[in-house]
């Protein structure tokens, strides 16, 4: 645990030493802010619906951009050798990197709390839906982050990591968008695998254990893949 925190702390610092965190958070707030404002002032509705509908899409770009450097940069610069030869387990490295990305995710998501405050002042939003929406975002974002961490273990090149994680997330996101074209039996399977379907469930205000289990298992599977790919150096050439 101690090692996980040490690695996560360093990683978070490096997000803020480099402009990555600032740029991403600014862009995120700009986009969500525009949609929030337009809904509030043009449609006159006190809801976060638009933001919760949009964020899963923004995250498809946003999270790979956050995680793309986490391990691939260590591989490129050789610092991977530094941490892998200190008494730290590979699993601790993966978890440390994951929690760092998770922290940035939490910071980003909760920077939108200002919208909720505005809504509370101006109208009477449905609190339950908003809380559920935030919980959904956290789970979905974490799942994306675990995919991103996995992608960053497979290459020294950040761009490759970005594209791979973007691609995996995109596929998982789009799975339930083709429901009209496919037989129902296949459709329900695809729907269950799709990330957006589970998020929409939660964002409606229904926190179902099936959705939570889905996200937790996605996180677990990809972190396991990441760990597996990191220890690969032990069996193959690097």
């Amino acid at each position: 645990m101690h090692n996980i925190i040490t690695i996560a702390k360093r990683e978070i610092k490096s997000y803020f030493f480099t402009p990555v965190a600032y740029i991403l958070m600014t862009i995120f707030l700009l986009i969500t802010g525009w949609f929030f404002g337009s809904e509030l002032f043009l449609v006159n509705e006190a809801t976060m619906r638009n933001i919760f509908a949009l964020t899963p899409l923004i995250f498809i770009f946003f999270i790979p951009a956050v995680t793309m450097r986490s391990i691939s940069e260590e591989k490129r610069s050789g610092t991977i050798e530094l941490i892998c030869t200190s008494p730290v387990k590979d699993s601790e490295i993966v978890l440390g990197k994951f929690f760092a990305a998770f922290s940035l995710l939490v910071a980003t998501i909760f920077s939108t709390i200002i919208y909720v405050i505005i809504l509370l002042i101006l109208g009477k939003p449905d609190g339950g839906v908003i809380v559920a929406g935030y919980i959904g975002l956290l789970f979905m974002g974490s799942a994306y982050a675990s995919i991103g961490i996995f992608a960053s273990t497979i290459s020294k090149n950040q761009i490759v990591s970005f594209i791979v994680s973007f691609f995996i997330i995109m596929v998982l996101y789009l799975l339930d968008k083709f429901m009209y074209f496919i037989p129902t039996w296949l459709g329900s399977i695809l729907q269950y695998i799709s990330v957006d379907y589970h998020f929409q469930n939660i964002a409606r205000g229904v926190i179902d254990s099936r959705d939570i289990i889905y996200y937790l298992s996605l996180i677990f599977v990809f972190l396991f893949f990441a760990w597996n790919s990191l220890t690969k150096r032990k069996y193959l050439s690097t």
């Binding site: 090692n3 040490t6 690695i7 360093r10 610092k13 030493f17 610092t79 941490i83 030869t85 200190s86």
Partner: peptide, 30 residues
């Protein structure tokens, strides 16, 4: 790994950190 101190080839270190932070980070890992 606890018994060994290792300076890898090319001396890779986190270039964005400052010297003291880096040493504290390694001390914590160690």
């Amino acid at each position: 790994r606890k018994m060994i101190g290792y300076l890898p080839e090319g001396c890779p270190i986190y270039t964005e950190m400052n010297v003291v932070d880096f040493l504290y980070f390694i001390a914590e890992l160690r």
